[in-house]
């Protein structure tokens, strides 16, 4: 190595190391620590015996963890499916309509993005108040003379999760909308013009030209939806509480994870072993689901 190489190495280290150290300590190290911690039994914050996969076995096969975990996982799945089918579909529709420059599109574009900037906590509490039995939404139904629509939006077990998801869609739908809008705006105009001149119908243009060309952004939104659905925490915390009430019907892996890690419900004390196992499961699910959706949608990508 020459002196010049050493100098270059030192400069590169100088530029890269501060950031890399922080990422390594705060993001990468905890991943391995979680894996390691999940293999031990814990007494509060003290590591005791090596139990192998015992903690994972307990999460999957032993009560009360089994019921809680499967229940929470089911709710995360609901979050994913509803977000994907309603929010992202709505986002695609909004993005498409905005891309067609309908009158007032610049205004609408700015309006639907407003709630994206708000803190989830504030939005959760705000809608929590509106959805109370004596809140604004029921007040509105009373006002228009439809008392049959009065509901305990957050108090009914079969309804609560969907109410929270609806609030989340209110907050977030502007994001996929504008991502799709940007993607559609990037579709070369001559392609579209040519199709229209050939007399192609609106639906054909959308299905055969626009949709295939925006697959990359659909992938991005899908992956973000997966990561988001697996990590839902704040909406539950602010609207139905850490226990996912009523009767755990809104519980998610995020709230369950928090409760086991910081001990507020099932046992009353933190259970680091079980908590770490759930943490590892979150990592694994995120990773597998992201890879899967990237691979699945990657096949459908078209080169122009």
């Amino acid at each position: 190595m020459t002196r010049k190489d050493v100098r270059k190495g030192l400069w590169v280290s100088f530029f890269v190391l501060p950031g890399l150290t922080i990422v390594a300590v705060v993001i990468l190290l905890p991943l391995f620590m979680s894996l390691f911690n999940s293999l031990f039994s814990w007494n509060q914050l003290i590591r005791t015996d090596f139990v192998g996969l015992g903690n994972f076995k307990r999460v999957f096969f032993t009560e009360p963890y089994k019921t809680r975990f499967l229940n929470a996982l089911g709710n995360n799945l609901t979050w994913f499916l509803v977000t994907m089918c309603v929010q992202n579909a709505l986002g695609l529709l909004f993005g498409y309509l905005l891309s067609r420059k309908i009158p007032g599109h610049e205004f609408y574009k700015r309006v639907i993005f407003i709630p994206v900037l708000f803190s989830i906590v504030a939005v959760g509490f705000l809608w929590g108040l509106y959805l109370k039995p004596n809140g604004l939404l029921n007040g509105f139904f009373k006002l228009i003379g439809r008392p049959d629509l009065l509901k305990a939006w957050l108090g009914d077990e079969s309804l609560a999760t969907f109410s929270i998801i609806a609030v989340n869609i209110w907050r977030w739908v502007g994001f996929p909308s504008l991502v799709f809008l940007a993607a559609i705006d990037n579709v070369p105009t001559d392609c579209l013009e040519a199709a229209y001149l050939d007399g192609a119908r609106e639906s054909t243009v959308f299905g055969r030209i626009v949709l295939p060309l925006i697959v990359p952004s659909i992938t991005v939104i899908a992956v973000l939806t997966i990561i988001g659905s697996l990590n839902v925490f704040e909406p539950i915390y602010t609207m139905t509480g850490l226990d996912g009430s009523p009767n755990f019907s809104t519980d998610t892996i995020g709230t369950l994870f928090y409760r086991t890690a910081f001990g507020s419900v099932d046992s009353g004390s933190p259970e680091i072993g079980i908590g770490s196992a759930i943490g590892v499961i979150i990592y694994a699910l995120t990773f597998v689901a992201s890879i899967f959706s990237i691979a699945a949608l990657g096949k459908k990508e078209v080169e122009l």
Partner: peptide
């Protein structure tokens, strides 16, 4: 490699790391 290490942070859910971070 350095670039990939940084990028891995985009995919990893940081909330899942809360236990080791708290102990740390």
């Amino acid at each position: 490699l350095v670039y990939m290490l940084f990028l891995s942070g985009i995919m990893l859910p940081l909330k899942a790391a809360i236990i080791p971070l708290f102990i740390l």
